[in-house]
Design a protein around this nucleic acid. Structure first.
Length: 405
RNA sequence: GGUGGGAUACCCAAGCGGUCAACGGGGGCAGACUGUAAAUCUGUUGGCAUAUGCCUACGGUGGUUCAAGUCCACCUCCCACCA
């Protein structure tokens, strides 16, 4: 493998990052790597408890892909050890601790999904139980002796929780140290993460130094706001676009992002030449152009990159059909009812899975949200007598086809 | 270890014995307007429903009372200050 000029590599990596700390050390590492013809070890930690990857993850994964394309070794560290302990920070949700088996299968799912962005043939996967699981208590004490409480409390999460009078458990202080120790175990040259990881990544530097290693360089990527446009994209907030979403969902979800986020999405989640992004931003600034067209372009590009152009075309067509022309989708869930037998509408909605309770169904009816064959139903005691196929629509995107049998 | 404060629906939060399925805000959902954008306005946000009706819910368990989120006891957990 011959490496590109260090300066060229630096430029490629730097693009899209928020920070590279410290930049001069990074250039030095790149130079040495080229001189000795040894790839750098690039580390990314990931949590095996939530294997549903989404566009938020893709920002960091894409950067990892850049490293791969430049010939460096990318190591994915699956945090199976920490996951087995179970993060108590959201104890209300009684997060179940994962078994060994679960962490492996979650990791597989993770890698399988990451394949859409990374070159998995060149990916090294390590589990941190491999080294963390072997540490004994004196090893842990030694590790804990390398960092102070005051520095730990500098971390935003902790500071906020402390101020908000939320509990912080001692072992949560050990989390950053455990992650830092991963870097020691791997002798990582670079660690990547979102900006929310900055603290942890920096701890890695100090701990490596304390264990006699050359500190890693850290690179942080911007956090991608979710569909609501404000909060970070995350599974728990439900504002995400998953790699595994159907093309239709992907497209639809992307159409619902606020305009203000368009430019960021173009920059972070698809690979377009800089010039093209600039052009898009110029058009966006022009108030005479409807941003919807640009948003459709975004949706198309993303579906194209996770599926293919045919699926992207279909997704776009699907969207225009249902929401622009307000037609019916091709695939509608079906409920079969006995022909000629009357049944309360609320019962049908409930049985058909459109609502969680009949009360919710009544609420929706009284809010004019329910249509049968495009006619609004206003009576909560409305009865249906199935004679021929009809289509029920609840709100904008819930459909149910009633078939008499 | 001591003293004091606290635990309420998805989140924050009011509640001071009956009028509490619980004020208000956020979020969600729906309607109007739209570009399934944003902003705005309106409604709604425990379940069952032939019901001025019943059931479930205010950290847990008991108790006082005709009546308890509200009072008492004990328990569990959290926070602050002092050690």
């Amino acid at each position: 493998m011959t490496f590109l000029d260090p300066e060229k590599q630096f430029e490629i990596i730097k693009k899209g990052t928020v920070e590279i700390i410290p930049e001069d050390e990074f250039i030095n590492k790149l130079r040495q790597s080229k001189l000795s013809n040894n790839p750098l070890k690039i580390k990314l930690g990931c949590d095996p408890s939530a294997p549903d990857l989404h566009l938020g993850h893709s920002v960091v994964l894409r950067k990892l892909r850049d490293f791969q394309d430049l010939g460096h070794s990318v190591i994915l560290v699956i945090g199976d050890f920490t996951a087995m302990i179970g993060d108590p920070s959201e104890r209300k949700k009684t997060r179940p601790t994962l078994t060994f088996k679960e962490t492996r299968s979650n990791a597989e799912t993770y890698v399988h999904q990451a394949e859409k962005v990374l070159d998995t043939s060149k990916l090294e996967i390590r589990y941190n139980s491999e080294w963390l699981g072997k540490m004994n208590f004196s090893d842990v004490i030694k590790l804990a002796g390398k960092y102070t409480i005051a520095r730990m409390l500098e971390r935003d999460d902790f500071e906020n929780r402390y101020k908000a009078q939320q509990p912080i458990y001692i072992h949560e202080f050990l989390y950053p140290l455990a992650q830092a120790f991963d870097s020691v175990a791997l002798d990582a040259d670079v660690e990547l993460g979102g900006t929310d990881q900055k603290f942890n990544l920096l701890v890695g530097r100090e701990i490596q130094l304390a264990y006699g290693q050359t500190p890693q360089v850290i690179a942080t990527m911007p956090l991608l706001e979710g569909l609501d446009g404000v909060m970070k994209m995350s599974k728990s907030l439900g504002n995400y676009v998953a790699f595994e979403d159907t093309p239709e969902d992907m497209f639809g979800k992307l159409m619902s992002i606020p305009d203000s986020l368009l430019s960021k999405y173009f920059r972070l989640v698809i690979e377009l030449p800089v010039a093209e992004i600039k052009e898009i931003e110029r058009v966006l600034a022009d108030s005479s152009v409807n941003p919807m067209e640009i948003k459709k372009r975004l949706g198309w590009e993303i579906v194209n990159s996770y599926y293919d152009s045919a699926r992207a075309d279909e997704a776009k067509e699907h969207f225009e059909k249902i929401f622009s022309r307000k037609e019916l989708p091709e695939k509608i869930p079906v409920i079969k009812l006995q022909k000629g037998k009357s049944i309360l509408l609320v019962d049908v909605m409930h049985k058909g899975g459109l609502v969680n309770s009949k009360s919710e169904a009544r609420r929706l009816i009284s809010q004019n949200a329910v249509k049968i064959d495009n006619k609004v139903i206003t009576n909560i005691n409305h009865e249906i007598t199935p004679e021929s196929e009809v289509v029920m629509k609840v709100g904008k995107r819930r459909f149910l086809k009633i078939i008499p049998i």
